[in-house]
Amino acid sequence: MLQAPSRDYSSVLGLALEKAKNALSSKGIVFSVEEGKGFYDIIVEREYLVAGATALKEAGFDHVVSLTVTDYPKEKKFRLVYHLTSYLDYEIAGAIIGLGVEVPRSDRPSVPSLTQVWRSAEFQEREVYEFFGIEFEGHPDLRPLLLTPPVAELRPLRKDFVVREENIYEGVPKSG
């Protein structure tokens, strides 16, 4: 249970990062840390993803806030980050730590699913699957969530899908 007085967010974030680092290095996982504004991303190699997730869950990061995927067509990769935080661990509650992996960009990229670790990732993984076409191995129910299957085939959030916007005169009937 969170208590008054309100705490300084950056110190909580620092504490959470330390905790996450300790949890990962105790399992012998290699990682690199990237700083964002208001959060840290811990990037691991693909084979460490499930082990790292289990370690972080044990360290108290109990749910996924956002499964953030960014497409970098120039570098030919997807950056896939599970942004995590904690409800039940008072010390680190609210601090956002990302557990990320870089996926090579291809037609059918795939990563191991973390739904078994965090149930809260289930719908977000389905969402990423339909928008980016990234397949999650071992996901219990991998179907498109928001889009219909033909639209999901277009992988709408990849950078090579370009939105065409109508101009100001479209929709204006010619005669008065």
């Binding site: 249970m1 969170l2 208590q3 008054a4 007085p5 309100s6």
Partner: peptide, 8 residues
Amino acid sequence: MPPKVAVK
């Protein structure tokens, strides 16, 4: 006065 949690 900062905000606080109140269990009711």
